[in-house]
Amino acid sequence: MNNKEEFFQRIKNNIEKDNFHITVVQTSENPRFAYTIGNLEKLQFELILAGNENYLYKDLLKIFNSIVPKLTKNINPEEISVEIEGFGTFRFREVHKSWNEFMMLGVYDYYKIESFKAYQILPDNKHYTLDIPDMSIEWNADNIIWKWLDDRIEWKFEVPRDSQVVTEVQVLFGEKITEVTRWEENEWEGFTQNGEDVDKNNLRVVPIATLLGIDNSLEPILKLGIEKGIWREDENSEWNSWD
């Protein structure tokens, strides 16, 4: 059995056991996203949650497993919301098919279909992070955070394509990074406070393009040498070298 056959068998087993399968995709260029395979059979649509990296992997599984049992094919998801204790209240928005074609390839492959309906899972305002795309409108290459879904697009930054930043989850909600150090060719750390004071539970690894899409004042970090750092007093201040 080849890898593709094994993948399809795992999906089939999960659908038989749990009624659906969850695929989680993490790349170095785009925020993480997760989607279902198998709900087409019961609900006539699939679900996707994109970005929202404040939630951990295990949180994603909890969210999907809490939401799906509450849905039926007779319910319009856009007219309801689902509350999950500890995670907030979620609503749903129909996804433009252009996003399906980039992000939900497993559904196409498994069902051998040309199109299908999907809904984006959206959190309440308290849990809404800046890496979440509006998937109700057509995907386009102007979105610096999500444009890299199309691997034909030339990487425009003078750093490796797999460059990532270890940062705090608060940055995804809009808090500004005030100190940055580049440790490797493709690895940075960027914090809103003294790095020694950061709660390790709040750490996230974020693609560098995602951070630049959230805050373009971070562009100077692209010019940092290895083991060099910069800092600023606040978002309106100039960057200073640690040297």
Results as ranks from 00 to 15, higher is better:
Glu85Pro: 03
Leu224Ser: 08
Leu130Gly: 07
Gly38Ala: 04
Trp155Asp: 14
Trp155Ala: 14
Glu187Lys: 09
Asn140Glu: 01
Glu219Lys: 13
Ser217Glu: 13
Val24Asp: 00
Gln9Gly: 07
Gln44Ile: 05
Ile226Thr: 09
Asn140Ala: 05
Ile230Thr: 11
Glu227Gln: 13
Lys223Phe: 14
Met104Val: 03
Asn194Phe: 07
Thr89Phe: 04
Glu41Phe: 03
His21Asn: 15
Phe7Glu: 04
Asp243Val: 08
His21Met: 15
Lys17Leu: 06
Thr178Leu: 11
Glu219Leu: 12
Gln9Trp: 04
Phe87Gln: 08
Phe173Trp: 08
Glu101Ser: 07
Glu238Asp: 14
Glu138Ala: 15
Tyr35Glu: 00
Phe20Leu: 10
Val169Arg: 04
Phe8His: 13
Thr27Lys: 10
Trp146Phe: 09
Glu235Pro: 02
Ile67Leu: 12
Ile132Phe: 08
Gln120Cys: 06
Asn140Thr: 05
Arg91Gly: 14
Thr23Gly: 00
Glu16Met: 01
Glu6Ala: 11
Gln44Val: 04
Asn74Pro: 07
Asn74Gln: 14
Thr72Gly: 11
Tyr57Thr: 02
His96Lys: 12
Lys42Gln: 11
Ile113Cys: 07
Lys200Thr: 11
Pro77Asn: 12
Gly174Val: 05
Gln26Lys: 13
Glu196Ile: 02
Thr72Asn: 15
Leu122Gln: 14
Asn100Thr: 04
Ile67Glu: 12
Val169Asn: 03
Glu185Asn: 11
Thr23Asn: 13
Met104Gln: 11
Asn216Tyr: 06
Thr210His: 01
Pro133Cys: 07
Leu149Pro: 10
Gly195Asp: 00
Trp239Pro: 13
